[in-house]
Write a protein that binds this DNA or RNA. Structure first.
Ligand SMILES: [Mn+2]
Ligand SMILES: [Mn+2]
Ligand SMILES: [Zn+2]
Ligand SMILES: [Zn+2]
Lengths: 125, 125
DNA sequence: TATTTTATTGCGAATATGTTGCAATAATAC
DNA sequence: GTATTATTGCAACATATTCGCAATAAAATA
């Protein structure tokens, strides 16, 4: 299944690249210049996830947020299994550069982590 | 708003107390002997959360799971902000006795944590 | 360049989860 | 026993995400 370049794909990727925050489908739809169908946005985002370009965070509101997360030093490299912070005041989610380190019981194998702290961010406190 | 004792409340609480896992509304509905309305189950669960008897976990499937979580040593006492583990194989969620410790940037204030690791549990590996 | 292939899109409908309004019921206080 | 009001069931609602399908268009091929 070869990927194709489309205006939609580019627009969504640009938005994510230029955003310091993780974005939900509706936030993306709102912020886009061009009009893109809801289902399409989800499909584009899910494809990005499959391709490892983007990662998905599920917040306590049950919604999916998408982000391109990079290391501070190594902007290219994606760091895995990091914490996220959701500000209840400005309702944004951002990647924290804090890796998730959690020792699990014997015989358990961790494949993924979805860790979201909530509270108030620096801008809002 | 004084709480009242009802068969529903007792049944749900019993289920949660005897379960080693966090339960979703539909799991509770399935496991109950008596038939209880969906909305009622949610209301009972949310009341338990308000009262601090139960805590809610949102998994990456976007669903809410509810658990009574106790310390191993101190079965009465609830430990706060701990990790959870979701086994993709047997599709269960359990509380890990591992506290969430995450240093957030300056000016950030953490109020809550929703941390779920996914993978395979001991029974399934 | 013209044609073919098939990934991508838009639309509508479906699914799933959780909440809410309202009237009926029943637990508790008096 | 009666009054008060928390709790329940039901239906409707709200929201988020997915899916089927036909139309479109990017990329490969002739
Ligand atoms: Mn992230
Ligand atoms: Mn727990
Ligand atoms: Zn904020
Ligand atoms: Zn398992």
């Amino acid at each position: 299944m070869n990927r194709r370049n489309t205006p939609t794909k580019e627009a969504v990727l640009n938005l994510l690249m230029n955003s310091r925050k993780a974005l939900s489908q509706d936030a993306i739809e709102r912020q886009l210049d061009i009009e893109i169908n809801r289902a399409t946005i989800y499909r584009v985002l899910n494809r990005f996830c499959e391709d490892g370009i983007v990662h998905k965070i599920v917040a306590e509101d049950g919604k999916q947020y998408f982000a391109i997360c990079k290391k501070c030093e190594n902007p290219q490299e994606v760091i895995q299994h990091h914490f996220h912070f959701r500000c209840l005041s400005c309702d944004t989610i951002e990647c924290l550069q804090v890796p998730v380190e959690c020792s699990v019981p014997n015989g358990y194998e961790v494949q993924n982590a979805n860790c979201v702290l909530t509270g108030t961010c620096n801008d809002c406190s």
